[in-house]
Design a protein around this nucleic acid. Structure first.
Lengths: 205, 205, 205, 205
DNA sequence: AATGAATGAGAGTTCATTCAT
DNA sequence: CATGAATGAACTCTCATTCAT
């Protein structure tokens, strides 16, 4: 059954890339040797090259999997007819959710994407810029529609939100049930309302 | 003039470490070769070892310079008798200000500190934890004193703020006059008040 | 044939260590570069590291092979019920015999053992001390049983004998048939009877 | 006073060479760095080159000092009208005596002389061969005159004696009063009479 | 008489990669 | 599929040596 064989192959390949992602996430791309990856898999170094042709290639693939879905999801959110505040809340939530299924990939993308060279570089860069652009447009639109504070600079706010969210991949424990949702909600509250308490009649700050 | 000689030595050494910081900041610690550093200085690679004994050592020194002052400054801010909101605002501001004078050092500290090994590792870790602890206490105290939102989890808020601020070292242009202050103020507004506009009588969110 | 493969591996590794032993014996450990070793084998220098992980490691292995058997053989000799003189004679003989099969290893052990560092150091030191101890006990016992001269200091005599024998690895030509046995016998005569001729009735010296 | 200055210079130079000898003796020539030597003297590395022009040069000088006197002393002994046994005894004694005043030099000569290259090599080799030749002649003459055992091979016996004596530089403690003389006497007894006890009427071995 | 600064050469070691099996 | 063996390139680090001061 060639199909079954192919499926098995496919799965094995995924395991290899998974090990690469894990290793890159733990040690960083440059500090990871192919030896490190092979050890995780109980494989000899040379055997890896049956699955990818270059360490660089593995990085590119890990990064691409790491961004996969971000753009589409955010586009859907933006296209929906929710309130802007809700869009931001959902945006944050869906920025963190992938940590559950592919934390290593996301982490590697965020930290090591700059080490992608060759043709993959542009691709990765383009996706990144596109994603940031979507966020920026979301903020900007919300501001123009007077839903967001008029003093805001959309780009700066975007980078603030993304900085906040990206850092989470370094400390958030995705195994802990409900943790991702909790953190996402906290982030959303901070971003939307700030940390100041509503202090009765007096306007804040 | 022995003093002049010693001062010259000191200055030269600073230049070397500066080049290391610059290189690490640009390429990342592991992707930086000592050769790269030497080229910046118009020096042969071997000559670097007259100034530091190990690439690791250079990293350690860069990282320590990179954190220098953060703790002290934040301690002063916390100890002052300002309002909590002002403390947070000042904290953010002084987290970004060092980017002006030693951006490379700060960036390296933030991104490559985990690659410090040996005795320096503990030192760097301790400072980092101390700094985070100060922030967390600041938030927590503000919350207990009902100045900050009671729904806040202090640790999560802390990591949110620091994530936001740290990311700035990757994109903020410290050469642009007033930029740091502008970004700091934007961050402060977001963190304190959120991005929502005050929309008249209706309470937000 | 996995067994054949394994045997081939084993043999190849032995060749590598052999080349290391040869090179160390010729130039001394510190004056031998891994390059030197590689040249003997018609291999690129980097390829050596497929077989051992460190030059130090190679030295350790060479040294251990160099001492291998000495202790066991001497123990057997001591345990036999020969006369003490015969034991000494046999001890000398079996100290020299290994030069035939593994001269380089023995030479390296004798001259460069002090350059073994790390965990191997203790091991090598222990074996050495054990071997010396056996000799010393042999001499001491012979003296106590009035077979050896009562004026002897066992430790000094031991070191005298070993010094004499060890030096042989520097000049004795083990290729020459019968040479080892000839030298061993000469040494035994000297050690046991001294060089003075029996001059009739008058006692010597 | 130029003479006083010159004398001081001379003395200083001797100190430098002394430090080199000490270091070579402790670590071996190849494992000794000029840095090691400088440390002993509380001097910077570069300063050494005021006193010798090359590490090789230092080795050559140390070696030459290490052999100095051996040939002359042995020649005198051979030329004297003592009995052959006495000559051997004196030869051994005067082979060990220099350990008292210049142990490091002797040790380096014995172990590292082969690392002398260039013009010094021949010189060192010639002295060595001359010294060995004197011993060999001494033994041979004794044998021809029926004072030494007729079964002896002079060359082998020579190398046996020298091996025994040379090894002493590795373990003999020259600080201990009387130790050198004691060891020399033990060696002489062994070499001349052997270790067997005189067992009454029955001839030994 | 000594030093600070620098350098060229080379050493040991690591590593991604290849290829025949 | 996987491995053993090998390699070229690069890297960090050491060291003897030089030279202006």
């Amino acid at each position: 059954m060639p199909e079954g064989a192919s499926a098995r192959q496919f799965k094995r390949r995924a395991e290899i890339i998974d090990a690469a992602a894990q290793t890159f996430a733990d040690l960083g791309y440059n500090a990871s040797s192919t030896q490190n990856i092979a050890e995780v898999l109980n494989l000899r170094q040379a055997s890896l090259y049956y699955y990818f042709s270059t360490k660089q290639d593995a990085l590119r693939e890990v990064c691409l999997i790491g961004v996969q879905g971000f753009v589409e999801t955010l586009e859907e959110i933006c296209a929906s007819d929710r309130d802007w505040a809700d869009k931001v809340r959902a945006g944050i939530r869906h920025h963190l959710l992938p940590l559950r299924e592919k934390r290593a990939y996301v982490k590697v993308f965020q930290r090591d994407r700059h080490h992608v060279t060759g043709p993959g570089r542009k691709q990765v860069g383009a996706v990144t810029r596109h994603y940031e652009g979507l966020w920026q447009k979301l903020i900007e639109d919300g501001r123009i529609n007077r839903r967001f504070d008029s003093r805001l600079d959309a780009r700066t706010a975007t980078l603030a939100i993304l900085g906040m969210c990206n850092a989470a991949s370094a400390w958030l424990d995705p195994e802990k049930p409900g943790e991702i949702e909790r953190v996402a909600e906290q982030f959303a509250v901070i971003v939307l309302c700030g940390i100041l308490a509503d202090s009765g009649p007096e306007k804040r700050d």
